[in-house]
Nucleic acid binder design. Sequence first.
DNA 1: ACCTGAACACCGTTCAAGT
DNA 2: ACCTGAACACCGTTCAAGT
Lengths: 224, 224
Amino acid sequence: MTSTRTSERRASTRHAGLERHEIIDAALAIVTAEGGAALTMRRLAADLGVTTTTIYWHVGNREQLVVAIVERFAEEQSAIPVIGRTPRRRVLHAAMNLWRSARGHRNLTALASAAGATTLLELPLEAALAAELGAAGVHGERARDVVQAVLACIAGFLISEWRPAEQRPEALRPSELWSRVDDPRIDPSTLRALASPADHERLVESTLRAIIDAAVPETHRGTP
Amino acid sequence: MTSTRTSERRASTRHAGLERHEIIDAALAIVTAEGGAALTMRRLAADLGVTTTTIYWHVGNREQLVVAIVERFAEEQSAIPVIGRTPRRRVLHAAMNLWRSARGHRNLTALASAAGATTLLELPLEAALAAELGAAGVHGERARDVVQAVLACIAGFLISEWRPAEQRPEALRPSELWSRVDDPRIDPSTLRALASPADHERLVESTLRAIIDAAVPETHRGTP
DNA sequence: ACCTGAACACCGTTCAAGT
DNA sequence: ACCTGAACACCGTTCAAGT
């Protein structure tokens, strides 16, 4: 799977004829399949059947490559429709779309986050959220604050999934750590709960709902 | 500042006499001063006037070193008192203590987060939060959910500060990206706000308050 | 314009050898 | 038991040189 392009193209032309977008595509494939750590300049070059320096000629350096990957992926992403009968529900749905999207392509989200390119990645969905907030009567800085709070929560829940407890050293697992806590102020049932994992999906939704409900008036216009 | 310990100790004993806790201390110093990326085995060894392999003999590998650093820091952290007159306010205060703590030693928090060791780092403050939730009448899984939501939000807000807009390539700055958006669904005042940074400190507090208010009953016992 | 080969300055980690 | 020296298999990046 590595060098068909080399043998085919190299035979016919003096140059490899490699184009920038082919590099981005190959890089994107590596990231989605194996994560950002697998994206090394040498590995990418090998996949394309060229020398590492060729990559540099086309894309500059790794940081620029990452930005290009995120950009390309963002272009190809299709809009997710927002549903819901009340403005509030639509806002929540738009927020959950962001969560589902980020979670759907975690490897890319992780890479974008490390590069500080999350906004670039999710701009259309963020815009959709802002639009729904407007429809619900929330504008300006208040709308911005909701968007940012939603984004922070999503990012936070995501990173708590990046290193699932199972693949951590035993001493770092919350279950281990909490089971050792002997604090008279804390109810035994609470300690037990803290030692066991939460239903993430549900928790994300209820957290986003709390944030939204606090900022979005219950009814705007229409349904009394 | 590098090799006083070498010249002093090496002269007197055959062995360097290096102890594990000295390594951890030196590593912790590097991380707090210069961040996790600056913590390389060679750099650490050089700071201690010793060979890289010596570090491995004492601490195993880098991952174990990081865990040891976090552990040591957690030990030394003093408890932060919780204040507030109502249970709800005390819960919020306990949550804000977590935020302030994490923000106060960002380099260590970032390192711990990458290693999946956040719980290890902040266990006492998490326990304090759980205790206040108990005092407010929230127990078991509901308390666990609040703790986790608070932690996720804090983590999310923190990483949005790790790469401040100023040190990103221009094309990645939210101000740049939002200023290009021309979406008729979105109010101009909202677009302007989205292009400018939020007051993080205020936003974190109001977000945590929203989460807590949604989960903690307004009055428990006492003040009617 | 496009690509190669060799090199530089880094990483984490291991292993045989010394005292 | 504690430490060194040399080596391995990686990184990102640059630069002179080729066609």
